[in-house]
Computed example of a mutant assay.
Amino acid sequence: MGLDIGDRRIGVAVSDELGLTAQPVLTLVRKNRKQDLKSLGRLLRKYGCAAIVAGNPLYMSGDVSPQAEKAQAFAHLLREEFGLPVYLWDERLTTTEAHRHLQAAGRPATEHREVVDQVAAVLILQGFMDARRVQTASD
């Protein structure tokens, strides 16, 4: 499962059974920590997820941003709550790239807000899976 973790919303994506492609699932509107974890737990069970990839929004310099600190803390909670591996993935510019993908697909800007977090989650998960495939091929 791939997550684009924000203060108000969490974009969620999952991979296909072969781990080749990422697909959007939904945008979770955050309520509180307990509800957020409960909703994510349901999705993890529904899709049979074995790991979580959480976006890590670093500054362009590579330094840890305040938002990255929040994402890292939430990733830690996910590890504790679900006992699954949680990988942090550099998500610099994924939201910008998500907006570009939506524009290229002809989606009006007014619709972007509804799905941009899902698309960002797809980009995070797909980038992680692609990098693992390349790394495995070179080993």
Rank of each mutant, 00 (worst) to 15 (best):
H76M: 06
Y59H: 14
N56K: 10
W89A: 10
A98E: 04
C49M: 10
L20S: 11
H76V: 03
E80F: 08
A98H: 05
P66V: 01
P85C: 06
T27K: 01
K70C: 00
T21L: 15
F74I: 04
T94H: 02
Y87V: 13
V53S: 00
Q35I: 12
Q72H: 02
T95M: 01
T96C: 02
G62C: 02
L40R: 08
M60Q: 14
V29I: 15
N56Y: 15
P66R: 05
R42P: 06
A104R: 13
Q35T: 14
K31C: 07
G19C: 07
D36I: 12
A105Q: 09
A73M: 06
L43V: 00
Y47P: 07
E17R: 12
Q67P: 05
R33F: 00
A73W: 03
K38P: 02
A68G: 07
A105W: 05
E91V: 06
A104Y: 00
L43S: 06
L93P: 01
L40N: 03
A50M: 06
R100Q: 13
K46V: 11
L43Y: 10
I52G: 03
C49S: 11
Q67T: 13
A51L: 12
H101W: 13
A54T: 08
A54F: 09
E17P: 09
Q72F: 00
E97Q: 13
M60L: 15
S65I: 08
E80Y: 03
G55M: 09
Y87K: 04
L58A: 03
L18G: 15
G83M: 06
P24H: 07
L28N: 01
Y59I: 03
R45K: 14
L78R: 01
K31E: 15
F82Y: 12
A51W: 07
P57V: 07
L77W: 11
P66M: 01
P24M: 10
Q72P: 00
L84W: 06
A104F: 04
T95G: 07
R100D: 11
L18S: 14
E91K: 05
G19D: 09
G55L: 09
T21P: 08
M60V: 14
L40P: 05
V64T: 15
G41S: 01
Q67G: 08
E80A: 10
N32T: 02
Q67N: 11
V53D: 05
H76C: 01
V86W: 04
K34C: 06
F82H: 08
L18F: 13
A50V: 11
